[in-house]
Nucleic acid binder design. Structure first.
Lengths: 358, 358
DNA sequence: TTTAGCACTCAATTCGTTTGAGTGCTAACT
DNA sequence: AGTTAGCACTCAAACGAATTGAGTGCTAAA
């Protein structure tokens, strides 16, 4: 029996770590002999077997079938990630790649995030994910109408998180430029910083009275604004490098992979996952069934929220098999998110000629 | 021997059609006997076999191996699509679905297209694709600056195709609202309708002189405008329902499916395909190697450009196995594109209460 | 030109055999 | 106590022979 249940001897840790590492690399059950080599241990395979049997009893290892090697269980990975993992240092090449590709993409958040997800995928060889969460209560901090021609104008809305959305609006009755200017002004006077649920009838009536003769356009415009707000609030998930997953044998089961694809497309599950964990600003590691999305039972999702001024603006993540190279993935996400947060703190956008004042 | 090479007897056509239909439905090689039943023919299976042998010699059929049934060749599908296909009439339910889902999504073109691609996928059970092609020479037809605070403003650009793009711009020196207004005016006076290659140094210098004291911001703004133009011109591909493909046995070969996924993500190949065929406004059907994208050799791509005022604004398409249900796909794309073109011709956007005057 | 009949082909299925990596256990050893 | 050599045991995977059956091509008669 082990000394104390819940306590792992140094040697057990060493063995567990070796097993996890080997299994991450090869994907196949690892046996007692191969451990002797991979970790330079000075004992016999029989001893390792004994230890492995105990580790299995404690729940850290599993055996696919009686005459096979051992595979880390979910608990085993958990322990590995929490206590055994070794920090992976990115190569200068990788760092340079991140810097170069992201610097070019500076600009809107969604573009940065999606570029980051591409990078995450190509650096880790898993699937990269960029998430803009449902924030729950978005409002619009600035409106602007752009007159196009007597039948069309564009409504631009800047959200409280900085996102910009636009909608074309077609009017049946001829429109003049001053009318659009007036609308812009009135909207900014009445609707700024109001979440959808606080745009009530009295406010709309106020808006109509301020528009005077042109009050007829208020109703449709309000509808467009509702659309904009729900757009802003609907969250977005962009996925890159799904094809990468197919290189891992765990996804050769087509039906399971198909279900995973479906979940990624529906995007709801992913958004839920991220928003439940989203208040933390640290990296989350969800291994297998920890994610409560049943189709991800054999997968792992690692993601890091992107935070600015205490607000979670998005997240980038990596999805892969349960036996993913956590060390590398964690390092990559840290590197990416650091870079992104630098880009968002807008400190050098227009000083094109000048050098960034670091 | 056949009467004249290149001419198919009625009976041959009937047989070919029956084979294609059966193979589309079942996915397996079809034998002489099963044709007797599916097409109500009054001859024996031996006769059919003779005909099939000739059809094979002519290149319309193929035999996976000596003792198997026949499978339509690429040429066979081509002939089927060109001459044998029967028009499929969508059910009223399907039509209603299109109407409902697209009507809600009215608004920006990219949203409509992506909704349409979702619909295409769920109606056909293949993968839906929405494409906004590289137009080659985009220009900006209207600029607007939106002042946020002394360190930030937003540049809005309305492209010649109606697309709207925005960029946050950060300035190092304090900024005032009138400056942004002035910039807006100057940009509209100097850069409207100029494609990127015609924004030359003299023009930029003109711009700087017009900005007077604030000429320092011109350089960076120009850079942003270049970005916007290349953004507008870079094309976009949005894919929905890739998971659908996995239900077809032709994609159970993982490595091939993986390559296909990769091609869809790179999006270049798809954009090229569509833009080479893009001047036509009719539906294109690319079967197997016709598409010149080698990874699509066992697939078929059907797409329909969305045209307004003679300009190709986008395209929606369906990607599936070579044995795709062309009749249904063609009907679905026709239905969708008709609907989209109606939505784009903006004829009822703001008459919310009134009924569409169609 | 069509058709019945028959020999032939060949992928797919089935089933028994072999192989070998890896284990668990026991008994000796330190 | 803990460790180790040795050995019997297990079981998935790989291999291969035999069987099956759908479907063909050919031939000779109608």
């Amino acid at each position: 029996m082990a000394k104390k249940s819940g306590e792992l001897s140094e040697r057990k840790k060493q063995i567990l770590k070796a097993i996890v590492n080997a299994h991450i690399e090869g994907g196949e059950p690892v046996g007692s002999k191969s451990i002797l080599q991979s970790a330079g241990m000075n004992c016999s395979s029989a001893t390792i077997r004994n230890e492995m049997a105990e580790l299995e009893e404690m729940g850290y290892l599993e055996q696919p079938h009686a005459s096979a090697g051992r595979v880390p269980s979910e608990l085993g990975y958990r322990f590995y990630v929490d206590s055994l993992i070794e920090h992976y240092a990115m190569t200068t090449q990788e760092i340079a790649q991140i810097n170069n590709l992201l610097r070019v993409k500076m600009g809107e958040l969604d573009q940065i995030l999606s570029a980051a997800s591409h990078l995450a995928s190509s650096l880790t060889n898993y699937t990269g994910i960029a998430i803009q969460p449902r924030s729950g209560s978005v409002s619009i901090s600035k409106f602007e109408g752009i007159f196009l021609d007597p039948a069309h104008f564009i409504l631009v809305a800047v959200s409280s998180t900085g996102t910009v959305k636009t909608k074309h609006i077609h009017t049946e009755f001829p429109l003049e430029e001053p009318t659009v200017a007036k609308l812009t002004q009135v909207l900014n006077e009445t609707l700024v910083n109001l979440p959808a649920e606080r745009i009530t009838l009295p406010i709309i009536m106020d808006l109509e009275s301020r528009m005077g003769a042109e009050s007829g356009m208020v109703g449709p415009v309000i509808k467009v604004i509702y659309d904009l707000l729900s757009d802003l609030d609907s969250g977005a998930v962009s996925v890159s490098g799904i094809d990468q997953l197919l290189q891992y044998p765990e996804y050769s089961d087509t039906s399971q992979f198909r279900a995973l694809l479906g979940a990624l497309e529906k995007k709801d599950d992913i958004l839920d996952l991220v928003s439940t964990k989203g208040n933390e600003s640290d990296i989350s590691v969800l291994i297998g069934s920890e994610s409560s999305v049943k189709v991800m039972n054999n997968s792992a999702l690692v993601f890091k929220p992107i935070v600015k001024d205490g607000k979670t603006l998005g997240a980038i993540g990596v999805l892969g098999p349960r036996r993913m190279d956590y060390a590398r993935v964690l390092a990559t996400l840290e590197g990416l998110s650091g870079n992104i947060e630098n880009l968002i703190q807008p400190n050098q956008q227009i000083t094109d000629g000048g050098k960034p004042n670091g």
